[in-house]
C-alpha cells in the first residue's frame, strides 16, 4: 500500500470543502449559504425523524432537544457542549468542527449547523432563532451558538436566522 494520506472520511470532508469553496467563488458566500441552508434543512428533517423514532416520542422536549443537538454533533465528531439552558434559549460551545480543519474560510458551511439546529428546534418547540456568535470557520478558536427558543425582544434583536414549525 502506498503511503498516501487518503481515506474515506478525509476524502469526504475535502470534497465538501471544495464544493463549498466552489459555490462561494462562483455565486458568492451569501448565495452559497442559501444552498447549504436548504441542504441543512433536509438534513434537519431526517435527523429529527431519526431521533424522534429512537426516543419513541412524537415531539422532543426542550431538555431532549439540547441532548439531541449535542449527541448528533458528537456522533459526527463535533465537540459541542451546553453552556446555558433555559426555556428561552440554549447556548452551545464547540471545540471541534465536524468538518475538521477543512471548514476554515468556508463560513457558508456554518449554515449546516444553523439550519439543522434551527429546523429541529422549530419543528419540536414551534420557534427558533439561531445566532452563530463565534465560528471556527471564521477563524475563531471555538464556536459559540445560541438557539433562541422564544421570540423574545433579545431574540428579535439578535443577528441570526429564524425558523418556525411548518
Amino acid at each position: 500500500m502506498l503511503d498516501v494520506p487518503l481515506e474515506r472520511d478525509g476524502f469526504t470532508r475535502t470534497l465538501i470543502r471544495h464544493l463549498a469553496g466552489t459555490l462561494q467563488d462562483v455565486v458568492g458566500t451569501d448565495e452559497a449559504s442559501g444552498f447549504v441552508a436548504i441542504v441543512g434543512q433536509r438534513m434537519g428533517d431526517e435527523l429529527n425523524a431519526m431521533y424522534r423514532t429512537a426516543l419513541g416520542v412524537s415531539n422532543l422536549t426542550r431538555e431532549q432537544l439540547a441532548d439531541v443537538l449535542v449527541d448528533l454533533k458528537r456522533r459526527i465528531q463535533g465537540d459541542f457542549y451546553i453552556i446555558e439552558e433555559t426555556d428561552e434559549k440554549l447556548v452551545f460551545g464547540n471545540r471541534a468542527c465536524p468538518f475538521g480543519d477543512r471548514v476554515v474560510d468556508r463560513p457558508s458551511l456554518c449554515m449546516m449547523t444553523s439550519n439543522v439546529f434551527g429546523s429541529i428546534a422549530a419543528e419540536n418547540l414551534g420557534y427558533s432563532k439561531v445566532v452563530i456568535e463565534n465560528a471556527i470557520a471564521r477563524g475563531d478558536h471555538e464556536c459559540r451558538v445560541v438557539v433562541h427558543l422564544q421570540p423574545t425582544a433579545g431574540a428579535r434583536a439578535a443577528r441570526g436566522r429564524e425558523y418556525v414549525r411548518t
Binding site: 449559504s33 444552498f35 434543512q41 434551527g118 429546523s119 425558523y163
Partner: peptide, 9 residues
C-alpha cells in the same frame, strides 16, 4: 416558510 433566510432556488 420555515426559515426567514433568503434561499436560492
Amino acid at each position: 416558510r420555515r426559515s426567514s433566510s433568503p434561499l436560492p432556488g
